[in-house]
Simulated assay, not measured.
Amino acid sequence: MNLRNNLFDKKDGAARIPYDETNAAGDLAKAIKQLLPARITSRPVVIVCIGTDRSTGDSLGPLVGTLLEEKNLSSFFVYGTLENPVHAVNLAEKLDEIKKIHFNPFIIGIDACLGRLKSVGVIQAGEGPVKPGAGVNKELPEVGDIHITGIVNVSGFMEFFVLQNTRLHLVLNMAKTIANGLYKASLTYESNPIISAFKWESDREQDIQGRIGKV
């Protein structure tokens, strides 16, 4: 859980999308696709959903991970679910594990945060990592080449109490929007660009040979 006031202006390159806005998932998908690496690269895309199911407000990440796991994404890899959460205790270990399994991964960090009253329900997507640990007074590693955060409640006073009393209805619906946005983005993102590039070169060579044979 990132308890810092994590608000970004559009001038900083971050999209801010209310979760209940018409076509919120589609708008989020567009923002995510603009942030993903070019498809000519071979970097695997890994989604790290941070949080715990022991706190309503902090369950945004694991809910997103669980919803994505149910969608069986073919292009992205997902870590952090309700069953196997990624949280303050195991975060460093999980990041090491991810880097051993995936070569040079492009990581999308997902976390809940607190912010201004008027921003509750806003989903943010932008460049740079999420910075978990502010609420548990621990030095935790930053997570992500890009981030997706959801403002689940108001910051500034008794944050742990606020988190425990955050409405699950809000958090679940925000998680659904984030998961649907990531799913939509994954449908148009090539998961194996090297193979695609090889196929293109192979098809091109066959076309050239075909033309030579006709001469």
Rank of each mutant, 00 (worst) to 15 (best):
G80T: 02
K71C: 00
S75Q: 15
N84V: 15
K71A: 01
N84K: 15
E83F: 02
S42N: 14
T41K: 10
K71I: 01
S74E: 15
S74H: 06
D53N: 13
A31R: 01
E70D: 14
L60T: 08
T52G: 13
L73H: 01
G51W: 12
G61D: 02
L60E: 11
L73K: 02
L82S: 06
V78S: 05
V64W: 01
L73P: 01
N72S: 11
R43W: 01
D53W: 07
E83G: 14
I32S: 05
E83W: 00
T81K: 01
K33V: 09
F77S: 15
P37N: 06
C49Q: 05
K30T: 12
I50V: 14
P44W: 12
V48K: 01
S59K: 03
K30C: 00
L63D: 05
Y79D: 08
I40A: 07
F76N: 04
S74G: 10
F77H: 15
G57K: 11
F76H: 08
S42A: 15
G57N: 13
T56E: 07
D53T: 07
P44T: 12
V45W: 04
E70G: 08
T41M: 05
K71M: 03
N72P: 02
S42I: 09
V46F: 14
R43V: 00
S42L: 08
L36S: 04
I50C: 08
R39T: 14
L82K: 11
L68M: 08
F77I: 04
T66N: 03
V78G: 03
N72C: 07
L73Y: 03
G57H: 13
D58P: 12
T52D: 11
S75G: 02
L68G: 09
E69L: 06
V64P: 01
L63N: 13
L73F: 02
T56M: 07
G80Y: 11
R39Q: 15
E69K: 11
V46K: 11
G57E: 10
P62T: 03
G80F: 14
K30I: 08
S55N: 14
I40E: 12
V78E: 09
I40M: 07
L68D: 05
C49Y: 02
S75L: 03
L68P: 08
T66Y: 05
K30S: 11
D53I: 09
S55V: 15
S74I: 00
A31S: 14
G65P: 10
L67S: 02
E70C: 03
I40K: 14
L82C: 12
L82V: 14
L73T: 00
